[in-house]
Design a protein around this nucleic acid. Structure first.
Lengths: 344, 344
DNA sequence: TATAGTTGCACAATCGTTTGCGCAATTATA
DNA sequence: TATAATTGCGCAAACGATTGTGCAACTATA
C-alpha cells in the first residue's frame, strides 16, 4: 500500500502557476515583506487550506537549523516525581510551539550517552536532563557543541552546567532535625544512587543535622544504593533486623519509602509506634497512607518551569549559557509518621 | 556565539579527497555492495570517528521518508497509569532504535488535534494514542494519510483503528459483582469522561453487574465526569451527603479514588466500616493505604508492548493496518476496602 | 594484443524548505 | 515622453543525506 503523496509547496505552486518561493513566503506570512499581491496571497492561502498543506518540518529544520524540539532525559519516567516534571515541561514546551522527545535513561550512563547521541543527531534545539551521575564526558561534549542544556534535580558535579533543583541539603536537614527534636537518636537513612548530587546533598543534610545535635554518625545506619522501591524494601528489611533497631527511617525518595512501607508492614510493625519514617517527595497519596506520611515536598512546578525558561532563554538568545545554579526551597509537611520519643 | 560547524559527510569527503557518496556508503556499511576498497573504507571509518561524525537525521529523514520516531499522545502524563505506559513504550521504542515524541492532550480535543498536526509535520513513522474521545475526524485524517496508528486504553468508537486495552467491562463487572456478593445494594460509581470507551465499558460493566443481581439502577448513584482527583473528591463528597448514602463506591480510575479518599477522610468516615470502595488501576501504594484498597489492575506491560509491536509491524511491512481489537484481561485484587454487609 | 570483465569510485538528482538577489512590468515623476 | 521608482514575483543555491548510473583504470581471457 503506497503512502499517498503529501501536499508540498511545489504541488501548490504548480496548481497555481506561481513559484515555490512565492508560496513559501505567503505561507510564512511574509507577503508584505516580499510584496506579494493580495490576490496571489489569498489564492495561495486558500489552496493551501484546501489541499490540507502541512509543512515538512524535516526540510524546514534542515534549512533553518532549528527544529522547535527539545530533548528530555530522565532516569525513570514512571517515577511519579519525574512523571510530574515531564508533564509540566511538555506543557510548557507545547505552549511555546516546541515538541519534546522524551528518553528514559534507566539510571544507566550508557543509555544516557546513546540518548544524547540520538538527540543531537535529531538536531534538537536544547536538552533538559537529570543526569545519571558519575561520568560527564558526554555532557561536556554536548556543551562543546554549544547545544543548550540545563540540568534538573541532579547537578553535574565536575562540569559547569545550568541547574535547577531543590535545596536537598536543607530539606534533608530539616527532616532529620525534626526527628531529633522528637527524641530520635538512632535514625537511619536509606539513600539513592551514591554519586548523584541529590543523594550527596540529602545524606549531607542528614549528617549535618545529626552533628549539630551532637549525635554520632553510625555508618551502619547509612544504607541503600538506588532510588527504587526494591532498594527501599531490602534496606528497610535489613535495618529492621539489626540488634538495636533504628527508631526512625529517613527515605530519600518516594519509591524508597514505598519499599520501606512494604518491609515494615511485612514485619507487622506499626508506624509511628514501632518505627517512624519521613520520605522525600510528597505524593498525592501521602496523606491517605495507613499512617499519613511526613514528607519533604519538592517544588516540581517551579523546577519544571524555571528549567524550561532557562533553556528557552538560551535557545532564543543563542548565547552561551550562564551556569546558573538555582536551588529552590523544599517544603516540610508534617503528618503522622513520626513518633515523639520520650527518654529519661 | 556561533554554533560550531558539525561534521558532515562533506567535511569528511573533503578531508580525504573522496566523494560524498563514498563516505555515505562506507558509513552505512555498504562497502562491499558498492565495492569500496578496504583501504578507503578503513580510512573513512577512522576519520569519521576522529571528527566525531553524527549523521543528521533531518537530512536522512527527508531523503528516506523515515524518521525512526513515533508519537505518543496521552491524556495525562502525570497520571501514574499513563506514566507507566509511557515509560514502557519509550523503552520498547528505544530498544528498537526509535525515539518518541510525547504529547499530553490534557483531555482536550483541540490539543489532540494540534498535537497530531505537529507530529505529522515532523514526519513521525507512527502514532500511539489514547484518544480524548468525542470527535474523530482528525484521527480519520491520520488514517487517510496512511500514517500507522494504534489506539490504547481508549477506543475510537466511530472509526476502525487497531486497539489495545483492558477488558474494562469485565473488570468493572467483577468489581461490582464482588460488592454485591458482599451484601452491597446501594453502590455508587464515579465515572470518568463520559464519551470515552473506557468509561462506557466500565459503566456498562457496573450496570450489568447490578442487573444480573436484580438490583435496580439508581441514576443518582452514577456520577462524575472526568478522571481527575478533583472529580473524585467532589462527587464522593456529594454522594456522602445524600439522604440514603451508598454503602460502596466504585471509582473508575486511580485519581478518582484518591479524590474519594480525600472526601471520605474529610468526613471522618472509616473504610470499610462506613463506606466500601473499589478502584480501577492498581498502584504501588494501593496496599499501604489507610485501608489497603481492593482494585482492578490493568495489564499495562502487555498494553504497552502489544501496542508497540502492532505499530512496528505496520511500520515495517508498510501495510495498511488490520483493525485488531485486543482486549486484555484485568486482575481483581482483593484487599480490605470492602465490608461484608449482613442485612436481615 | 584486442576484448571482456572487474574493481573502485564520482556525478548528479532528489527529499521540501527558505531566502538573497535579480528582473520585467507597471506606475510615478520630471 | 523619457527616466526613476515601485510592484510583483521567479531563479537558484543551500541545508545534509542516499542511491542509480556511468565511467575510467585495471585485470583476466582468448
Amino acid at each position: 500500500m503506497k503512502r499517498q503523496i503529501d501536499t508540498t509547496l511545489e504541488s501548490i505552486s504548480k496548481q497555481l502557476n506561481v513559484s515555490i518561493s512565492t508560496v513559501s513566503r505567503v505561507l510564512n506570512g511574509k507577503s508584505k515583506k516580499y510584496r506579494i499581491s493580495k490576490k496571489t496571497t489569498d489564492l495561495i492561502l486558500k489552496t493551501a487550506q484546501q489541499l490540507d498543506y502541512i509543512p515538512n518540518q524535516l526540510a524546514r529544520g534542515l534549512r533553518l537549523k532549528m527544529t522547535n524540539t527539545i530533548g528530555l532525559i530522565i532516569p525513570d519516567i514512571a517515577n511519579p516525581f519525574f512523571a510530574k516534571i515531564a508533564s509540566l515541561i511538555e506543557k510548557s514546551a507545547r505552549d511555546n510551539g516546541f515538541s519534546v522527545i522524551v528518553s528514559d535513561s534507566e539510571e544507566k550512563t550508557e543509555v544516557e550517552i546513546s540518548s544524547l547521541q540520538t538527540l543531537t543527531s535529531r538536531k534538537i534545539d536544547g536538552i533538559i536532563i537529570s543526569p545519571v551521575g558519575g561520568q560527564s564526558k558526554h555532557l561536556a561534549s554536548i556543551k562543546n557543541r554549544n547545544i543548550p542544556i540545563v540540568t534538573i534535580d541532579r547537578q553535574c558535579l565536575d562540569l559547569e552546567l545550568p541547574f535547577v533543583g531543590s535545596d536537598n541539603f536543607k530539606g534533608a536537614f530539616t527532616a532529620v532535625n525534626y526527628l531529633v527534636k522528637n527524641g530520635h537518636t538512632r535514625i537511619a537513612i536509606i539513600q539513592g544512587i551514591k554519586n548523584t548530587s541529590v543523594n550527596i546533598d540529602r545524606v549531607n543534610g542528614y549528617i549535618e543535622a545529626l552533628k549539630e545535635n551532637s549525635i554520632s554518625i553510625d555508618k551502619r545506619l547509612i544504607v541503600g544504593e538506588n532510588f527504587g522501591e526494591g532498594n527501599g524494601y531490602v534496606e528497610a528489611s535489613l535495618l529492621l533486623n539489626i540488634e538495636k533497631r533504628p527508631t526512625a527511617i529517613f527515605a530519600t525518595g518516594n519509591l524508597i519509602s514505598l519499599g520501606a512501607l512494604r518491609a515494615i508492614y511485612e514485619k507487622k510493625l506499626r508506624i509511628p509506634e514501632d518505627i517512624s519514617i519521613i520520605s522525600f517527595d510528597d505524593q498525592p497519596y501521602s496523606s491517605y497512607l495507613a499512617t499519613p506520611m511526613t514528607t519533604v515536598a519538592q517544588p516540581n512546578h517551579e523546577i519544571a518551569s524555571i528549567a524550561f525558561r532557562l533553556l528557552m532563554d538560551c535557545i532564543e538568545t543563542n548565547k552561551t549559557m550562564e551556569p546558573y545554579k538555582i536551588l529552590l526551597p523544599t517544603k516540610f509537611i508534617i503528618r503522622d509518621s513520626v513518633a515523639k520519643i520520650t527518654t529519661h
